[in-house]
Design a protein around this nucleic acid. Structure first.
Length: 359
DNA sequence: GTTAAGCTAAACACCG
DNA sequence: TCGGTGTTTAGCTTAA
């Protein structure tokens, strides 16, 4: 029988481990990710540095995270009334980030893997029996010139429902607005602009947006601006901002990577589960968009404080800094950047200075 | 098994 | 009258 959640398990030696630069839960999530391909995590490296060896971290019944000294997690940068990271039990979002390769560069090494191959910044874990790269562990490399080639794949995203709830979409739209307030029509437009899926989605999604605005206490209607015509302006209630930010951490896990199709026997019957079937049918998943990178940075920061960003590999820093540098290539500022700034500011992350220009 | 959250659909009223 | 907006209700699925 598996131990109850919170029960201590595993070897006693774990308690004597050195401080981990990443929360143990995050490492466990990575271990599960590796385990999903039939492997087990034996060693973890971050940015080329061996963090720890552990033989039992892939035990799915082990839910303890008491070994993580909070001091190493540095939550002091949480903005405003954000809840402390230790209150958040849910790392679903992090599995999403891993699935989306947003934690690329974290070097996973399996004990019985004899070689970890680096191709550029792409990490390939070689499987001993088959000598073929693990489809799960194979991480695509980030753009070589991330500042020039932001990963915005509208052609793919057009067919993929974004992994955000409507409240998150509305939140992002409003936060991206200069006045932090938008009429419903502009919220529609922002969503369509950033998630082309909705361009051809059934009309019901607009109803869902309005339903969300009306029902969700996080959104408030304010007096209509003169000349606005029908409708009101909608804003985010500052008191509920933290809960909306937390909602980013509860996003559903998107479909598996294109080269790891789920077993057909697990495919939901579209007749019985139309919603789930539609969600899962939206594969292959698109490459992460700039907004997803930003959401990833924000989620990580919200959970563990800004210091966690310094524990991520340089590739992640590139991803984050890219959006700041993009500021210089846009005239007047794009909504993506505003979204980025809003999210990162809310998460307490100061903008990273652009790297020095090559001489 | 229960509960909460979220999605979808539908109906209705209000307003420009 | 029409279409957009806002509200409410109900049923469903999923995750905790």
């Amino acid at each position: 029988m598996a131990p109850m959640r919170g029960e201590r398990g595993g070897s006693p030696a774990r308690g004597a481990r050195p401080s981990l630069p990443l929360p143990r839960k995050l490492i466990r999530q990575i271990a599960r990710h590796v385990a999903s391909s039939g492997r087990s995590l034996r060693r973890l490296e971050v940015s080329g540095r061996v963090i720890d060896n552990f033989d039992d971290i892939d035990d799915p019944s082990d839910e303890s995270d008491m070994e993580v000294p909070q001091a190493t997690v540095a939550c002091g940068g949480n903005a405003g009334n954000l809840p402390p990271a230790e209150h958040d039990d849910d790392l679903t979002s992090l599995s999403w980030l891993q699935d989306r390769n947003l934690l690329r560069g974290i070097n996973l090494t399996k004990g019985d893997v004899e070689d970890t191959k680096m191709i550029g910044s792409q990490v390939v874990i070689k499987s001993e029996p088959s000598k073929t790269p693990s489809p799960v562990a194979r991480m695509p490399s980030p753009p070589r010139t991330p500042c020039k080639a932001p990963p915005s794949p509208p052609a793919v995203a057009a067919h993929t429902k974004p992994p955000y709830s409507f409240s998150c979409l509305i939140f992002m739209a409003i936060e991206a607005a200069p006045a932090r307030a938008l009429p419903v029509k502009e919220i529609y437009a922002w969503i369509v602009r950033h998630f082309p899926y909705f361009k051809h989605a059934p009309q019901g999604w607009k109803n869902s947006v309005r339903h969300n605005l009306s029902l969700n206490k996080c959104f408030h209607k304010v007096a209509a601006a003169p000349g606005l015509g029908k409708g009101s302006l909608w804003t985010v209630d500052p008191q509920h901002r933290a809960s909306l930010l937390q909602a980013f951490g509860r996003q559903p896990i998107p479909p598996a990577a294109p080269d790891t199709p789920p077993p057909a026997k697990n495919a939901p019957d579209p007749q019985l589960f139309p919603y789930l079937a539609r969600r899962l049918a939206a594969s292959p998943p698109p490459a992460p968009t700039a907004d997803e990178y930003l959401a990833a940075a924000s989620v990580l920061t919200m959970k563990y404080g800004p210091a966690v960003l310094d524990q991520l590999p340089p590739a992640a820093h590139l991803v984050i800094s890219r959006c700041v540098r993009d500021e210089h290539s846009y005239s007047g500022g794009c909504e993506e950047r505003r979204t980025a700034e809003a999210l990162l500011n809310l998460a307490g992350v100061p903008p990273r200075p652009p790297p020095p220009a090559p001489s």
